[in-house]
């Protein structure tokens, strides 16, 4: 056991939580300003989690108690593990070499699945309808997501995220591939709010229809864990997108050279800035300017338009590479 292992085991999850909640706070603030409100202070998500943790945790009578209580932990654990696979600037991912994009795909699914199972086990009609919706939505957006990842595998002939993050994908393909990549990026951006259960795809948690759906029976510590896993996953998902499509480093971009420790810090901050910009564009702006879809409309959107878009992108990329 080295010092680095201890850092990755304790420091990284902690950092993940802090970053996730911070980004959530910024997201809430900007969303409020977009609607002409003052909005909560940026530290508000930390207070929310703190308050939820000291509240009583209620397990409903009809619930299958152990599944009901385990699922929030599974959700948070999967989000945390997801974070460990993402290269942070030029620092390598902690679990480098122990898994690749396919594992990431599974981890993304696992969190949504944990929420759905938690919803089913709650034994409330609202939660059950919510869980059904979540399953349908999952089936819809997994396909485009898988296509995007296949596209990357075709270009790099590898599923390893570190390899992908080292060389920007745009430098490896020609003009036809560029169009293909843009299509894949667009598909991934549409999948993002669905993956993160944000508007316009927060159908499983529709507040006015099924009273927060999946989460309607959760309270106290369990809800806090789901809240945290949501915050961490949002950060991780956007960070993944940055690693896949925008891995340009600061020194490459501006042609500057730094010494060892300074470059780590600058590249780290540069990475965070990139994530923040993409977070605001792909999550905040989208969730503020769209209404909620109906479930069948959402799944039609994914199965037809987004799928066609992603497949077209894949074909273009394949033409270029082969």
């Amino acid at each position: 056991m080295t010092l680095a292992t201890i850092f990755y085991a304790i420091g990284f999850p902690l950092l993940g939580i802090i970053l996730g909640l911070l980004y959530k706070g910024i997201d809430r603030k900007i969303s409020a300003r977009m609607t002409s409100r003052i909005g909560p202070p940026i530290r508000q998500p930390f207070w929310d989690v703190g308050k939820l943790l000291i509240k009583e945790t209620v397990v409903p009578e009809n619930a299958v108690a152990w599944i009901f209580n385990v699922m929030p932990i599974v959700a948070l654990a999967s989000s945390m593990t997801l974070l460990l696979y993402i290269p942070f600037g030029i620092i390598k991912a902690p679990l480098e070499g122990y898994g690749d994009l396919v594992v990431i795909l599974y981890l993304l699914t696992l969190q949504a699945l944990a929420m759905a199972i938690g919803g089913f086990s709650a034994g409330s009609p609202f939660a059950s309808v919510g869980a059904q919706r979540e399953m349908i939505l999952m089936m819809s957006y997994e396909m485009p997501l898988a296509i995007v990842i296949t596209g990357f595998a075709l270009i790099y002939k590898s599923f390893s995220l570190s390899t992908i993050a080292l060389t920007p994908v745009w430098t490896l393909v020609g003009p036809v591939g560029w169009i293909g990549l843009l299509l894949l990026l667009a598909a991934l951006l549409i999948v993002t709010p669905a993956e993160l259960a944000k508007l316009p795809f927060d159908i499983a948690e529709a507040e006015t229809e099924i009273a927060e759906g999946l989460l309607s029976e959760y309270s106290g510590r369990n809800l806090a864990l789901f809240y945290l896993s949501d915050a961490v996953r949002s950060f991780a998902m956007v960070a993944l997108e940055v690693a896949l499509f925008f891995p340009f480093t600061f020194s490459q971009g501006f042609g500057l050279q730094f010494s060892e420790p300074v470059s780590y810090i600058i590249e780290g901050l540069w990475f965070l800035a990139k994530v923040l910009i993409l977070y605001i564009l792909a999550v905040t702006l989208v969730r503020t300017s769209f209404a909620r879809f109906r479930i069948e409309q959402a799944s039609r959107l994914f199965w037809t338009y987004v799928n066609i878009m992603a497949l077209l992108g894949l074909i273009l990329v394949a033409l270029e590479v082969m």
């Binding site: 900007i30 409020a32 300003r33 977009m34 609607t35 002409s36 409100r37 003052i38 909005g39 909560p40 202070p41 702006l285 503020t288 300017s289 769209f290």
Partner: peptide
């Protein structure tokens, strides 16, 4: 709606922060 939201982002918030902001 998206353009409207971006326009509102550039304006000052409409809320009157009475009695204190937070």
């Amino acid at each position: 709606a998206m353009f409207l939201m971006i326009r509102q982002l550039l304006q000052r918030p409409f809320t009157n922060p009475f009695p204190v902001k937070y």
